[in-house]
Structures are given as structure tokens and as C-alpha cells.
Amino acid sequence: MMTSTATPALKQSKLIRTLGPIFFWLVIWQLAAMIVGKELILPSPLSTLRTLFELAQGREFWIAAGHSLLRIFCGFIAGVILGAGLAILTSISGTADALISPVIRIVRATPVASFIILVLLWISRFMVPAFIAMLMVIPVIWEALSSTIRETDGDLLEMARAYEFGRLKTLRLVYIPSVLPSFTSACLTAQGLAWKSGVAAEVLCLPPSSVGTELYYSKIYLETPSLFAWTAVVVILSFLLEKLCRLALRRAVRQ
């Protein structure tokens, strides 16, 4: 009896906790838009939603969103794989660490715009967003993984050695579970960065059919509601990718 009444109440409270802040900030946004009174400077949430709805009716919208999602997702995955590979390499080899660590630190400190412009000179503009997203993801994953690999419990590693686990079994039973929590949070941080840098690259490189290109044209033609609508698309896609990421990592943890 207790459970049957408590569960819907809990669900309701969770729903309020999730939707409450969203509603609060939408009201603030609406009020600010009403005070400003100019769509060109600050469009209202309703006008943004209307524009988004209008955009979503065209085929081009879905193609642009799909292309951006694909590019940034590919860059993110490549960054995760490379970042993890480099973390393993720098953890097992002092020479590799001495060579690679400064490069990664420079990449982390360099403004993303410098990289976008530079990379645009080297590779096709279609590839730049994915490449930039990858470049921004690598240091985040590398940093999180290399420090956790180094901090792996020495007692457990010695136990694995004493019971003759071997390299693969030690990796599977000791290293991977040890690094999984920091890897998960690094992936979530990195995917946000991948979106920000990937879209910034699209804005500067203007590959056809992309969210970044649409954002650029919204700015050029002073279509502020469209600018807000495309930004909302980026936020929604980023949330979707984050959910996907969480789901995949949760499944990995369970296994």
C-alpha cells in the first residue's frame, strides 16, 4: 500500500524537479524578451519555438542536423579512442609520456579558433568540424585516463600478479573497472566540448548542410529567432548524445 502511493508521488516530485527549473527560466526569458521588446535583439521563447517548428518542416533542417550530428559524433568517437590509446601509451612508457604530454598540454591551451583556421588550410572544410571535435576531446580523455591508470590500486595489481592473472585479465578485472568512473565523467565533459568546438568549426568553415552554417547565415541576415532556434537544435542534439553516452557507459559498467 505504502509503495503504491509513494511511487507516483516520487515520480511527480522528480518531474517537478526536472521541469520546474526549465519552466522558471522560460518565464525569465519571456519576461526579458517582453522588456526588450525587439525580436532582433532577444526573441521570445514562443517565437523561437515557432521558428524551430517552421524549420523542422523542411527536409534541409533534418539533413543539416543529421550531418552535424554525424560529423561531431565521429570526431567525438575518434577523440575518445585516440585519447584512451595515448593515455595507455603514456602510462606504460616514460619516453612516450615525455614526448606526448607537452603536445597534449599545448593542444589544451591553444584557442580553438586558431586550430580551426589552421586545420582549414590542411584538410577539406567538410572534415574540419570532426577533426576539431576530435582534437578537443583527446586532452580531456587523456588527462582523466592517464591519471587514473597511474593511480590504480597497487595492492590490487600485486594481487593480480600473485594470482597470475596475466595482462589481459588484469586489464579486464583491475584496470578497466578502476578507470571506468573517471572515463565516464570525462566522456560526458568531452561530448559537450565536441559540440561546442564542432559547431564553432562549422561556423568558420561553412560546410554545406550543417547547423554551424545555418547559424552563420542567421547571423548574417540578422534572423535572431532562427539563430536561437538553431542553437536550441545544438542543445537538443548535445543532450541526446549525452543520453546515448550515459546509456552506453552504464551498459559497460553493468557488464
Binding site: 595492492d155 590490487l156 600485486e158 594481487m159 600473485a162 594470482y163 597470475e164 585479465k169 578485472l173 583491475v174
Partner: peptide, 25 residues
Amino acid sequence: EKVGIMFQEDRLLPWNTALKNVAHV
């Protein structure tokens, strides 16, 4: 050739159940 050791600390894998901790060996 093979020497087994039980350490002073338990050194169990915290992410595995009691059964799996023993089964790995």
C-alpha cells in the same frame, strides 16, 4: 614453481561479488 599468497589486506576486487572474486582464481 607456483606459490600462492593470502595478503595481510583482503585485496578483493570491490566491483566483483564474493563468488566472482574467488572464481577468478
